[in-house]
Simulated scan of single mutants.
Amino acid sequence: MLIRHRFIYALILFSSIVCQVVADEADVDPELEQQLDHYIELTQTDFNAGLELIEQLTASSLNISALQSRARLLGYLVTNTYHAEDFEQSEQLLQQLLQIAELTDDPNTLSEIYATELELLLFDLKLDQAIIKLERLESKLAQATEPRILYFSHNVIGRVYKTDGQYSEALQHFIKALDALELTDDKNSPVRLRRQAFLNFNIATAHAEL
């Protein structure tokens, strides 16, 4: 498994050197977005099939000009390598993701990037650093409009506040994440139901702590 990861991410590092062209910074690629939605569904039912799909998308779509979709793909790769315990590669990919942030002012794209960075800090238990970076994410998130990104970002912020014992703030963001989840189209998908259950649990525990 680790060999597969190293092969894919060597390709990523190579492709990041060859392609530096950026088009419309707020653009998305509908076909890639659909494939990434499918990838998320697969990770719940067939992990190996999900891994194969993300490999294909890495090879075919990592250099697309649509920055928002590229950031989403790269964000998934960052967390994948982290969970595969290839922490060095995960950090390198995160730096590539943060480079995209320098190319755009789009609040949706920036929220996804900063939320991914914040989630990794949370995984690493670097709570002090996560707290410092919260304001940057929250300022961009106030202008974001994409329900999936609103859900993801508010969820991450809520978990940071909860870990820090700031339960009132955590509760507000978990509720906002739940509201964003209600705006998504996948009403009956297993992924949405799991996310909803996760948020309801966190809302209940935040209420209990308060």
Rank of each mutant, 00 (worst) to 15 (best):
R6S: 05
F7H: 02
I8Y: 09
I8G: 05
A10W: 15
S15D: 09
S16W: 11
S16Y: 13
I17W: 14
C19D: 05
V22C: 04
D27V: 04
D27G: 03
V28M: 13
V28F: 14
D29Y: 07
Q34N: 03
Q34H: 07
Q34M: 05
Q34S: 04
Q35N: 14
L36A: 09
D37V: 08
H38L: 04
Y39N: 00
Y39G: 00
Y39E: 03
E41M: 09
Q44W: 12
N48P: 00
I54S: 12
A59N: 06
S60K: 13
S60Y: 10
S61W: 14
S61R: 11
N63R: 06
I64L: 14
S65C: 03
A66L: 08
R70D: 14
L73E: 15
L73C: 15
G75N: 11
Y76C: 07
V78A: 05
Y82I: 07
E85S: 08
E85G: 01
Q89T: 08
L93P: 01
L97A: 09
L97N: 12
I100P: 01
E102Q: 08
T109S: 04
E112P: 02
I113W: 13
Y114H: 06
T116Q: 14
L118E: 05
L118S: 06
D124L: 13
L127D: 01
Q129Y: 15
Q129P: 14
I131L: 13
I132P: 04
I132H: 10
I132Y: 14
K133R: 11
L134D: 11
E135P: 01
E138C: 01
A142D: 10
A142N: 04
T145E: 10
T145P: 03
I149L: 09
L150A: 01
L150V: 00
S153P: 00
H154M: 06
I157N: 02
I157H: 09
V160E: 14
K162Y: 09
T163A: 14
D164M: 08
D164T: 05
A170D: 04
A170Y: 03
Q172E: 05
I175S: 02
L178D: 07
L183N: 08
S189N: 08
P190H: 10
V191D: 13
R192L: 10
R195N: 05
Q196K: 04
A197G: 01
A197S: 04
F198N: 06
L199K: 04
L199S: 02
F201I: 00
N202A: 06
I203E: 14
A204I: 03
A204Y: 09
A204T: 07
T205C: 07
A206V: 00
